[in-house]
Amino acid sequence: MASKIKLELVTPERLLVSEEVDEIIAPGYEGEFGVLPEHTQYLAILSIGVLRYRKGDEVRKVAVGGGFAEVTPDRVVVLADVGEKAEEIDVDRARRAHERAEGTIKDLSLDDASYSKMRGALQRAIARMEAAG
């Protein structure tokens, strides 16, 4: 009986997290989901948001920008398109990106080609601020 989960969070550019953790909460495609040890085999698309994991009493946060999570009873592999640990995030930069995206998106209609792109940028900025703050 495994009492810990091996969390591996990788992005195309680097290995971000590789640790034994107790619990993971990830932003799934249809809402957040939590993973404890002995979870069933599960494969989910991740949306843009904050991934949290708990190690003892300590909770850490990582901002992820979409990707996949593969869950097996003793292991979680997260393939994130982009990822930043909370302590690496430049809050000022995220805030500026947030303001910029918000400003641009106000002037766009739903049909604009760049609308979904800007919405992605806005969501990423929000996720980064949430993870850091």
Partner: peptide
């Protein structure tokens, strides 16, 4: 696996 959303979409 359990898939979220569906296997095809994933």
């Amino acid at each position: 696996y359990l898939y979220e959303p569906s296997r095809e979409e994933i």
